[in-house]
Design a protein around this nucleic acid. Structure first.
Lengths: 133, 133
DNA sequence: CTCTGTGCAAAAGATTTGCAAGGTG
DNA sequence: CACCTTGCAAATCTTTTGCACAGAG
């Protein structure tokens, strides 16, 4: 890992992720950062998201449609709503024992795992029921 | 779900997925299918992959870098190698109880979950160790 | 002063889509 | 015959990258 500089833009990206309770996509972060600094570029935002994720400052969540970012750095699970596309934290503890078990059985060196539940959030579920009736 | 026709191209795509024990990306499937039918187009392959995944004939695995497809239709977990980018099945049983538990706690209607372990496969692990020493 | 980071724009990938023609049921 | 599918190409969308200049340490 090289030298990491503390530029205004990098702070801006980090703050943009922190300011949101949801799990924004890279482009949403770009738009947020853009409001605070009309000159920041997409390339810079993407670059910084990758750097911050690599340093463990933020988490990279691979959701359908577009990747998301998340402030929490402790590993945890997510839920993806097929209706509205939003991503939520799942109320379920991370299972480090899974990592150990898979490592032991396969010889992999496991860094961790991501789990994403797919379904309909309460709001979209209600909407779907109305259509069916 | 609309009417599904049994075209030659759709069969070809399905067979191309079945013929591979690994977890091919959409483009790898396109290349395979292309060898059997020099006229089949990318658009057709992508369209059919989406249709087959929606029908449950195949599984859509969201891995970093590119989405993968998988013949097995029963839910199961995967391992992604950060070194070579390959995807493997993980020797760990699917946990339907997780779905129930999350559904109960959140009010979501859960369709299922995907879990992907990240790490280094034995081969890449060995290669990495050589570099460090 | 040095070297990383930025802005801009172009490039690169991956996937989707419009449309006329073809093939299935 | 109706209409789902295909091929082709263009369009989208997301992310990466080359390069000259700016700014952090």
């Amino acid at each position: 890992m090289g030298q990491t500089r503390n530029t205004r833009q990098r702070q801006l990206v980090l703050e943009a992720v922190r300011a949101r309770m949801d799990h924004p996509s890279a482009d949403e972060i770009y738009l947020d950062a853009r409001q605070r600094d009309g000159r920041i570029s997409r390339g810079t935002v993407y670059r910084n998201l990758n750097i911050l994720a690599e340093c463990g400052e933020i988490t990279h969540v691979k959701a359908p449609a577009a990747d998301r970012y998340d402030l929490r750095s402790e590993p945890h699970y997510h839920m993806y709503c097929l209706g509205c596309g939003r991503v939520f934290d799942a109320p379920m503890p991370y299972r480090p024992d899974f990592d150990h078990q898979v490592a032991e059985e396969t010889g992999f060196e496991i860094r961790g795992h991501q789990t994403i539940f797919e379904g309909l959030c309460p709001a979209c579920r209600k909407r779907a029921e109305q259509f069916e009736s």
